[in-house]
């Protein structure tokens, strides 16, 4: 059985290339049909916000890459509830369906995967 990866994406979407490069790890796993899920934490939760306007920063729309994930077989997205709450985003609309996890559920999630990659 293929070994599984939990990718923890912690970088804000427009603070450089890091968030996009994290997402590329997920897309590559999908291309090879390997099991990978993504947990958005810290400023990484900002990637999930709807109605962003990256063009104002002359940036490519990262949410388009996010929305490509299901086509690559990456269907399971998680988001740390406390990171949304800390940023006043607890009630915000997210661009993708992501399961909201409390800290205990995050601990449990991490235990379920063979590898954890944090970017």
């Amino acid at each position: 059985m293929a070994k599984s990866v939990l990718l923890i994406s912690r970088q804000a979407p427009w603070a450089g290339i890091a968030a996009a490069e994290a997402l590329d790890i997920a897309l590559a796993a999908g291309a090879f049909d390997l099991p990978l899920s993504i947990l958005f934490m810290d400023d990484g939760v900002l990637q999930l916000l709807d109605q962003q306007q990256p063009l104002a920063l002359q940036q490519k729309d990262l949410s388009a890459n996010l929305q490509a994930l299901p086509m690559f077989g990456i269907e399971q997205l998680y988001v740390a509830q406390h990171c949304l709450t800390e940023r006043g985003l607890a009630e915000s609309t997210l661009v993708m369906t992501a399961e909201r996890l409390d800290d205990q559920q995050i601990q449990q999630l991490i235990r379920e995967y063979d590898y954890v990659v944090t970017l």
Binding site: K3, V5, I25, A28, A29, A31, F32, L34, D114, Y115
Partner: peptide
């Protein structure tokens, strides 16, 4: 990046 995943396997 496939080489990262290949290594992990």
């Amino acid at each position: 990046l496939g080489q990262l995943h290949d290594g992990l396997q």
